[in-house]
Amino acid sequence: MIDARPGRLRRVVALLGVHYDEMLEYRAELVLWMLSGSLPLILMGVWMQTAASRPMALQPIDFARYFIVLWLVRQATAVWVIYNFEAAVVEGRLSQRLLQPIDPGWHDFTEHVAERLARLPFLVALVGLFALLYPEAVWLPRPAALATGLALTAGAFMTRFAVQYTLAMVAFWSERASALQQLWFLFYIFLSGLMAPLTLFPPSVRTFAELTPFPYLVYMPTAAFLDSPAFPVDVGRAALVLTGWFVCFAVLNRWLWRRGLRRYSGMGA
């Protein structure tokens, strides 16, 4: 997506180090952001109670596993680049970054990756707490399921980043690009599998959802980790679809970036 010739690698790694150190300073903030993504844990409770109170295809324990994994997938794919970018354009801070010998996109990308690394210990702690509270739900995934789950999660993160960074380009034309993100997020919440496993959707809604990128960002990686007949997933197709969306948005992103930059007139530009 962003020009990555060899030789840039060292700069990118350096940026990653810088952003990692920065993230470590704001650990309290990290924990708060983590907790603010607790909607899946709330829904876990409602679904477990629902499954316990009437016969359903899924058992309470299925819901417990589904939502804890989904929570982890969401933690690993959180993206906020549009807010950074909007502020950088509106306040003119983008100018300083344009002077650096590296595409400004790398700053945001490495910041996101570094944040993931800094979050890791807290994730482990919270999953440990979950295992203590609900030991029956603990299971050891097969290595193959773990690998495909991680791969799809990485793909989901890259695609979300590409999409949001592309929406962020609207900041060159409008001061409130993040309003677009809110609209996107709406579909993301309801069609991604965040509210309920896709298998519980009415068939027509499910077919429609699978035509959009949303289930591939949440449901598919989650189901790949769970590797259970209760949560069917076609891993090959999911990987293909994610790659397709990623490439589309990456191309669109570079095109908008070049056109937007010509319009950019921030402080000092």
């Binding site: 309290a28 903030e29 708060l32 952001w33 907790l35 607790s38 709330i42 409602v46 109670q49």
Partner: peptide, 28 residues
């Protein structure tokens, strides 16, 4: 000064109010 997102946590928890309380397990 660094905890401006603490209100985001509150917002996330208040989202539980979408459903009646009887929909939750006892601990919740």
């Amino acid at each position: 000064v660094k905890i401006h997102n603490v209100t985001e946590v509150l917002k996330a928890l208040v989202a539980a109010g979408r459903y009646p309380m009887s929909a939750y397990p006892a601990a919740y």
